[in-house]
Amino acid sequence: MHEMSIAMAVVGQVEEAAGAGGAGAVTTVRLEVGELAGVVPDALAFCFELACAGTVLEGAALVTETVAARARCGSCGHAWPTGMPPELCCPGCARATDVELLTGRELRILTVEWDDGPAGPAPAAARPREPISEEA
């Protein structure tokens, strides 16, 4: 499952930023995930929790924001939501040869929130008991 490699990459980047910023504990990581990015949000949340164990992110909340896929026809200029699976034939002129995907492939860290101070494990009461997920 590639969600684990994504979670580990996010944790690594956030750890680096948190260390440079003098963070004691990361409390929230907000991600933007495109509808066509091939990421299952619940699987990512589960993997994120595992990847955070023993790091400054332990106990951090993961908030995912889904970005709907949109395309634009280069021939007629019509833009439309592609849906999932994506419909890449222009509903305006029925062409599929000059279509540009505008949104839907995003996978980026939007914001990170942390507490200042010396790093240490999150108290047991602050650790989530179930994987954290954000419904789209």
Rank of each mutant, 00 (worst) to 15 (best):
H2C: 02
M4T: 09
S5N: 07
I6D: 12
M8W: 06
M8F: 12
V10S: 05
V10D: 12
V11E: 05
V11F: 12
Q13G: 09
Q13F: 11
E16W: 04
E16R: 05
A17N: 14
A17G: 04
A18T: 07
A18E: 08
A18S: 09
G19M: 04
A20C: 03
A20E: 07
A20G: 03
G22C: 01
G24T: 02
G24H: 07
G24V: 03
G24S: 07
A25R: 13
V26Y: 01
T27A: 09
T27P: 04
T28H: 03
R30D: 11
L31S: 13
V33A: 11
V33F: 14
E35H: 03
L36E: 00
L36I: 02
A37G: 15
G38Y: 07
G38Q: 11
V40T: 08
V40E: 15
P41N: 12
P41S: 02
A43S: 15
L44N: 05
L44G: 10
F46Y: 13
E49F: 05
A53I: 09
T55G: 09
E58P: 06
G59P: 14
A61Q: 12
V63Y: 01
T66D: 04
A69P: 10
R70P: 13
R70M: 07
A71S: 10
R72H: 04
R72F: 00
C73E: 01
C76N: 01
C76W: 02
G77M: 01
H78R: 10
H78Y: 01
H78M: 06
H78W: 01
A79H: 05
A79M: 05
W80N: 06
G83R: 14
G83E: 12
G83V: 14
E87D: 11
L88M: 08
C89S: 08
C90K: 04
C90S: 10
P91L: 12
A94L: 11
A94W: 05
R95P: 10
A96Q: 06
T97M: 02
D98Y: 00
D98L: 00
E100L: 15
E100W: 02
E100Q: 12
L101D: 12
L101T: 07
L101Q: 12
L102F: 09
L102G: 09
G104P: 13
L107W: 01
L107F: 13
L110S: 13
V112C: 11
W114S: 14
W114M: 14
D115F: 00
D115N: 15
D116N: 08
G117C: 15
P118E: 10
P118N: 07
A119H: 04
P121K: 06
A122D: 01
A122I: 01
P123S: 02
A124R: 09
A126G: 04
A126K: 10
P128H: 02
P128G: 01
E130K: 00
E130N: 01
P131I: 03
I132N: 07
S133D: 00
S133C: 06
E134S: 15
E134A: 08
